[in-house]
Design a protein around this nucleic acid. Sequence first.
RNA 1: CAGAACAUAGCUCAGCUUGGUAGAGCGCUCGGUUCGGGACCGAGAGGCCGAGAGUUCAAAUCUCUUUGUUCUGACCA
Length: 558
Amino acid sequence: MKLKNAYFYTLREDARDEDSVSGNLLVKAGYIKKTSAGVYMMLPLGLRVQNKIEEIIRKYMNEAGAQEVKMPALIAAEYYEESGRMKGFGPSIFKLKDRNNKDMVLGPTHEELFAYAAKSHIKSYKNMPFNLYQFQTKYRDEPRARFGLVRVKEFVMKDAYSFDADEKGLDESYRKMFEAYKKSFDEMGINYRIVKADTGVMGGLLSEEFQAIAPLGEDTLVYCDECGYSSNLEVGKVVRTAKTYTEDIKEKQLVETPHCESIEDVAKYLKIDMADTVKALLMNVDGEFVVFFINGERELNESKVLKLLGGSELNFADDELIASSNAVPGYCGPIDLNCKVVIDEEVLEMRNFCCGSNSKGYHYINVNPSDIKYDIVGDITNTKQGDLCPVCGKPLNFTKGIEIGNTFKLGTKYSKAMDLQYADEENKLQDVWMGSYGIGLGRTMAAIVEQCHDDKGIIWPENIAPYKAIILIMSSKDVTQCTIANDLYRKLNELGIECILDDRDERPGVKFNDSELIGIPYRITVGKKAGEGILEFKKRDAQQPEELSIEEVIERLK
RNA sequence: CAGAACAUAGCUCAGCUUGGUAGAGCGCUCGGUUCGGGACCGAGAGGCCGAGAGUUCAAAUCUCUUUGUUCUGACCA
């Protein structure tokens, strides 16, 4: 690409409406442009990066034996009605009607259509295994688009679906995809971690996420250096530091706590440790009023709660629901509470703790497990700093991650719903075992920028940079420089080395800054010494440039 | 969905408190001087001040409504 006559621009100032590093840099460097919240144009440079990511994934998908197809984005709603996910996705699914008033959706993910496609092929066990994949645009009406390309409403996903006759087959298909994912992300140069995760709206048996390590990440990852245990915070079993309660059990006592509506206030007022308090969460579980009691320092884990209670929706309770009991918001405690009570298993180990009294302005201190009444007990909180590895008992580490890929063992959930069956060796009908595997391309791009940048701009890993090299002509009026630069540009192109020639009539500073902002891995400066056959060669992340001959430059880039 | 902030030129912003009909820097066009880290001089083009309603002789400015964008949370591959 010769810049002079190309669609190319950079911005000098930070984008006002992009607060994330990657969103700002991608917009500033002219890779993407926002059209509305969570919807972006892919400009020439951005599309090249996305295509690079796509090619790497395609290579490993094909290597793993998957076949590429392309499904429509516009889908009759009946497919999602059949699988029950019209409800599962709820407001996140884009709905529309055609001119005949037929309900349509813009596909948020494609298990249904792939299961439908598989029906045409699967008659007997002899037709499996196989794996289909696509690169295709997904639409999700996210409650809150944010962080540039990290969470958007329209994005390209690689999604693959495996079909096997039994669980053993699924395990093998899953393993192949898992390996292909590792190879893909390794080749892209991403720093990532694989964690166990919740199966969520996808359902199924197992979910693992590929998480790019980044402070911006919306997921918290917990991992153990000792044994390799690694999990999303939302699913990890909580194993507490073995705090030994040595003190004697005391008699519970009512104390005045005026205007202390939060557990922080109470702890501060009574001058006690938050870890020695039990807080109440007044919740609405599918319309039923349930109060949860957990250690004052912990957070309630929604997916654990729903799994424990077999519920589907968890919200804070409204005033009407609260009024159905004697619970007093801010002073709710597990003693003589007349509604459904669920306590975290940790509470049973605590001694002489503080909790609400169900009368305004008062809390109890020195409460013990024998004082309280409850209906259900279980592990219902998030892992937190200080907790131990559930496998080996060593202290856990925490980090933030951006979910760039995930793999699901779906089992027979969708084949049952979509009636996808095959005849086995005894001619009996059996359900097909499915797996599904996704990678978000734009999100991957964003995650890489989050990891690979400095104060001057992006630093693309070589394998996904839009171009490998950029040639800067210092003086566009210098005939020698122009000739040499154009000649080098031609030679590199002949060798299949993708490069940019900055032949714009700009001052050197502009060209240096732009080349750093857009993050091209190698910079070749054609300047004063060009006449002597000497060029300047600098890797994007190198401290100092080096002087090389034209031949040496070509050799380095081969 | 709740809370908060913001919306003025292509970009980043000032002006609003105290109403008088539009500003800066960068970018862009033309001319000149420059030419190895976002140069300088001169001359220009470019905006129904997000939209609608109201108050007023007069609204970018005050009031109400609305839409959009961002942040925090809720939610969410």
